[in-house]
Design a binder for these strands. Structure first.
Lengths: 122, 122
DNA sequence: GCTTGAGCTGGAGTGCACTCCAGCTTGTAG
DNA sequence: CTACAAGCTGGAGTGCACTCCAGCTCAAGC
């Protein structure tokens, strides 16, 4: 897989892929004879996971730290587990906030509808 | 209420409050004889609501648009309702993603624990 | 063998959302 | 009456996470 294929399949741009490599989010892949990046299939799963951490609010610096640990292999398992456990808690907090806000949206929408109906009544 | 009190009670900084005023998120408050901003209590509720929109991923530009509509009064009720309904849908999507990712964290943490236990076994 | 598209590097530029600063005025406490 | 904390304005600076660019090489089709 060349970088363009990864871009297409992951939804990231080639610039972003190279940028992620530069900052250590993605391990530098092998190169072919022409010096081009050749990725294994597994990078797609990793990118998807990164996106999930991203979308649930994990900071770049933490994702980079996690990526570095992952590259170091099994010796870092417990630290990675701790990071995920911490992140799990922040997700739970965000979930609660989302649910609160969703309920608030419902109340506000209902209130607005009522006010609109009354305004029409006149 | 002077700006410092609002800062303390809202958790925003005075700089952020003036910045929010500049970009139209907060209506310019009255001034006292010395030219200082005097806020009503209601600004606190409004800021809390803004923070909630913020924390659930609404973009600055949209919050500004909503704030502008709010300032225009009842004539904009239906447009505001539409915005909130749209935002409600994006919150729902984010909720689903959060729940997925939470489940993923659980699975990963469990897998890591198992691997750590096995490593210890040897 | 030449065109055209994809990839390469190093570095500059962008957009967002603040955050800080200089130099000034105002208000309160001793 | 004098510190000194808090507020004011306009504008510059920051940090994050990309995004784009110039100038080059490489690969595939006609």
């Amino acid at each position: 897989m060349l970088i363009g294929d990864v871009a297409k399949q992951s939804g990231l741009t080639v610039d972003t892929l190279r940028f992620y490599e530069k900052i250590g989010l993605i391990a530098p892949p092998m190169r072919n004879d022409g010096g081009r990046r050749v990725y294994g299939e597994d990078v797609l799963g990793w990118i998807k996971f990164l996106e999930q951490l991203n979308a649930t609010g994990m900071k770049q610096a933490d994702r980079i730290h996690y990526a570095a640990l992952r590259q170091q292999g099994d010796a870092t398992l417990s630290e990675r587990r701790e990071m995920l456990e911490l992140h799990r808690e922040t997700i739970k907090e965000q979930l609660a906030l989302m649910q609160d806000t969703l309920a608030l949206m419902d109340r506000k929408v209902a209130a607005y509808q009522e006010m609109e109906a009354k305004a029409k009544g006149h």
